[in-house]
């Protein structure tokens, strides 16, 4: 509860009263409402991996089940998470009203469009055979294309939302959209593998998948490195964000989970698998790697949100 910090004995300065960089306390775990604000992180995460899963499942691995799960994660998971987060959920429809200037309106419209296209595209395969197209038909392909495009926008818009915040230097960078996009795709890969495996099926080409994963992981690693270097070379506020990412408790999430567990270990597994291992051991390793990647995906989003610091209001000095 918000008042807990003031009515108990402990003395805490609200972020807005701080003279230095101020942490944003609205989005993500540890916000003003502690746990409940984490639903926004969940919404971003679910939106990313859900859309990613649809794209990966339909483009590379042709798994209808996985694609359906992906759409469901977006349509149900993301929506529910958003509603749980909102201060006034009954007015949620208002979120769509200003696509002209607001990335949130845009993103949520993308989401609706995506769910509509994806559902339409998948409809013939999930029992709605009465629709006048099949997944393979040109209309179906057009729907698919629409779904892929809108899914990409769903995957990328979070990045634009963050990047649009001018005073948060660690967000206000062109790296945000590609970073979020890549992570969404990678999350999609992981989700696809896990979904397919959980459904008792075998992924058609584990090798292809590993290769794709390795490429994605390498790209993500490169983006994270660039992100870090970028922060280190940027304003004092960005450097403070970086310090928090690597030098405070947040490092557990950022370095431990996001970089080591979510990037390096899966990378090692990916290369190790290509070199030696076969069969079930490889599958178990791959599954573990996927879970780690998803944890890393959530962690990096959490880390970025938590390290979001506003430039001091009076930064020019005195």
């Amino acid at each position: 509860m918000e008042s807990s910090s003031t009515s108990s004995g402990s003395v805490l300065q609200f972020e807005d009263f701080k003279s230095g960089p101020r942490a944003q306390t609205e989005w993500g775990f540890g916000g003003k409402r502690k746990w409940r604000d984490g639903w926004l992180l969940m919404a971003m995460f679910l939106g990313g991996i859900g859309a990613g899963q649809f794209v990966v499942s339909t483009w590379f691995f042709h798994s209808v089940t996985s694609a359906v799960v992906g759409v469901a994660i977006v349509a149900v998971g993301k929506t529910v998470a958003h509603l749980l987060y909102l201060g006034q959920p009954s007015r949620f429809y208002r979120l769509f009203l200003k696509p002209r200037t607001s990335w949130i309106s845009r993103g949520l419209i993308f989401m609706i469009v995506f769910v509509a296209f994806a559902a339409a595209y998948l409809a013939p395969d999930i029992g709605f055979s009465w629709v006048p197209w099949t997944t393979g038909s040109s209309l179906g392909q057009a729907l698919w294309l629409g779904a892929i495009l809108s899914a990409s926008l769903v995957m990328v818009y979070d990045g634009f939302v963050l990047a649009s915040c001018k005073s948060i230097t660690s967000w206000n960078t062109a790296l945000m959209p590609p970073l979020f996009f890549t992570y969404a795709i990678a999350g999609g890969v992981a989700m696809t593998y896990l979904t397919v495996t959980a459904a008792g099926k075998k992924i058609l080409s584990e090798g292809d998948m590993t290769t794709l994963d390795a490429i994605l992981l390498t790209t993500m690693f490169a983006l994270v490195v660039i992100y870090i270097v970028n922060m280190a070379a940027s304003t004092a506020t960005a450097r403070e964000s970086l310090r928090r990412l690597v030098g405070t408790r947040l490092a557990v999430a950022f370095i431990g989970l996001a970089i080591v567990a979510g990037l390096l270990v899966p990378l090692v597994i990916a290369y190790y698998r290509e070199l030696a291992v076969e069969g079930t051991v490889a599958s178990v390793l791959l599954a573990a790697s996927c879970i780690l990647e998803l944890a890393g995906d959530l962690s990096i989003r959490h880390s970025i949100l938590s390290a979001g610091l506003h430039t001091p209001v009076f930064s020019e000095g005195l």
């Binding site: 003031t6 003395v11 805490l12 300065q13 609200f14 009263f17």
Partner: peptide
């Protein structure tokens, strides 16, 4: 007084 107390908590000098 909770108003004064809350502001004091947010002033770096008053309660420290």
């Amino acid at each position: 007084n909770p108003w004064l107390d809350e502001v004091s908590q947010n002033d770096p000098y008053t309660y420290t």
